[in-house]
C-alpha cells in the first residue's frame, strides 16, 4: 500500500486534467468539433492553431453564478449597500457642513495628538490641508468626499483584516488557505471587481468602498500576520509559562508587540485606498478622482495635473497621520538589544 501512495497524487491530478478536457470537448459547439471524437486522433490539424473545442467553459457558469448571486442575495447586498451608504452620507454631510477653517482645525488637532505632539508634522499637514482648497475651491468638498470613502474603506479593512491576520498567524491551515486568495485579490485587475460591483451595489461610493476593501486589505492582513509571527518566541513562551490563556497572550503580548507592523499595514492600506478611490472615479464615485479623470478626458493636462497634486497632498496628509502614530507606538515597544 505504502508503495503505491506516491502515485495517488499524480494520478488524481491527471484524472482531473483529463476530466477538464472532456468537459471542454463536450460543452463545445458542434460546429467547432470534428464529426466524431475519434477524428482528433486521425486528423492532427488541431495541433496547429489552438482548437476551438479545447476551451474550458468557465464563462457561462460564472455569469450564471453571478446572476444567481444578484437574484438570490439581492437583499443582502442591498443591506450592505444601505449600511455603507448611510455611513458615508452622514459622515460626508456632517464634514461638508462644517466651515472649512473648522475642518482644518480638526485635522490639526488629530495630527497633533496622533503624532505625539510633533509640531513639524502638524504644521506640514495643516499646510497640505489648506492647499487642498487653495488649489481650487471646488476641490475642497471633493477631497472631503474622497477622505470619507477612504476612511470608511479603511475601517472596513481594519475590522475585517486584522482579525483575519491574527487568525492566519495562529493557524497554519488558515494561512495556507488564505494566502492564494490574497494573491488573487492583489493581482486581479481592479476593473474585474469594479464593474461587477456596480451590478451588485449600483454606481457611486459603495462599489468604491468594496473595491478599496478588495484592493487594500491584503497588505494589512499580511502585515498583521507577519507582525504577530515576528513577536519574539521566547516572549510568547514567557507569557504562556506564567499561565496566560491564549486570549491573554494575544491581547496582552502579541497584539501590542505587533502593533508597529499593524500600523505599517494600516498606513499601506490607506495609501492603496487612496489610489483605488481615484480609479473608482471611473465607476461614478465622486471625489477628487473625478477631476483627474475629467482633465484626462478633455485632454486638459493642466486640470489633470492640478487635481493630481491635490491627491498627492491628500496622500501626504494620510501618510503623515498614520505613519507618525505608528512611530509613536514603535518608540515605546521597540526591543533594543542591549546585552
Amino acid at each position: 500500500m505504502e508503495k503505491y501512495k506516491k502515485f495517488i497524487k499524480p494520478f488524481a491530478y491527471s484524472s482531473i486534467f483529463i476530466f477538464f478536457i472532456i468537459i471542454s470537448y463536450r460543452s463545445a459547439k458542434p460546429r467547432y468539433k470534428p464529426d466524431h471524437f475519434t477524428d482528433i486522433f486521425k486528423d492532427f490539424s488541431w495541433l496547429g492553431n489552438w482548437p476551438k473545442w479545447l476551451d474550458f467553459p468557465l464563462m457561462q457558469p460564472l455569469n450564471a453564478g453571478f446572476d444567481w448571486l444578484i437574484v438570490k442575495y439581492g437583499l443582502f447586498f442591498e443591506g450592505i449597500n444601505n449600511f455603507l451608504l448611510g455611513l458615508y452620507t452622514s459622515m460626508k454631510d456632517s464634514i461638508v457642513g462644517l466651515p472649512w477653517p473648522i475642518v482644518i482645525a480638526l485635522v490639526i488637532f488629530i495630527t497633533y495628538f496622533a503624532s505625539g505632539r510633533k509640531t513639524n508634522t502638524t504644521i506640514m499637514v495643516a499646510f497640505c490641508t489648506f492647499f487642498l482648497g487653495f488649489l481650487s475651491p471646488r476641490y475642497w468638498d471633493k477631497c472631503i468626499m474622497t477622505t470619507c470613502i477612504v476612511i470608511i474603506g479603511m475601517l472596513l479593512c481594519i475590522v475585517v483584516g486584522i482579525p483575519i491576520g491574527i487568525a492566519m498567524a495562529r493557524n497554519k491551515k488558515v494561512r495556507n488557505a488564505l494566502l492564494p486568495i490574497l494573491d488573487l485579490m492583489q493581482t486581479i485587475p481592479s476593473f474585474c471587481y469594479l464593474i461587477p460591483g456596480i451590478l451588485l451595489f449600483g454606481l457611486g461610493a459603495v462599489p468604491a468602498i468594496i473595491a478599496i476593501f478588495v484592493y487594500a486589505v491584503p497588505p494589512l492582513i499580511r502585515l498583521t500576520d507577519l507582525g504577530i509571527r515576528l513577536v519574539d518566541k521566547e516572549v510568547i513562551e514567557a507569557s504562556e509559562a506564567f499561565g496566560a490563556s491564549k486570549k491573554q497572550t494575544l491581547w496582552g503580548v502579541q497584539i501590542p508587540l505587533a502593533l508597529p507592523n499593524i500600523m505599517q499595514g494600516i498606513n499601506q492600506c490607506t495609501m492603496m485606498s487612496l489610489a483605488m478611490v481615484v480609479i473608482a472615479s471611473m465607476i461614478g464615485t465622486r471625489g477628487i478622482g473625478d477631476e483627474v479623470l475629467l482633465g484626462l478626458q478633455q485632454l486638459n493636462v493642466g486640470m489633470a495635473t492640478e487635481a493630481g497634486i491635490a491627491i498627492v497632498l491628500l496622500a501626504i496628509i494620510f501618510d503623515r497621520i498614520t505613519q507618525s502614530y505608528g512611530e509613536k507606538i514603535q518608540e515605546r515597544t521597540q526591543v533594543k538589544k542591549k546585552i
Binding site: 519574539d232 521566547e234 516572549v235 514567557a238 496582552g252 508587540l257
Partner: peptide, 12 residues
C-alpha cells in the same frame, strides 16, 4: 515559574 535565556521580558 520560569526564567529564560534571553530574559523573555515584555518590551512594552
Amino acid at each position: 515559574s520560569m526564567v529564560f535565556q534571553r530574559f523573555g521580558l515584555f518590551p512594552h
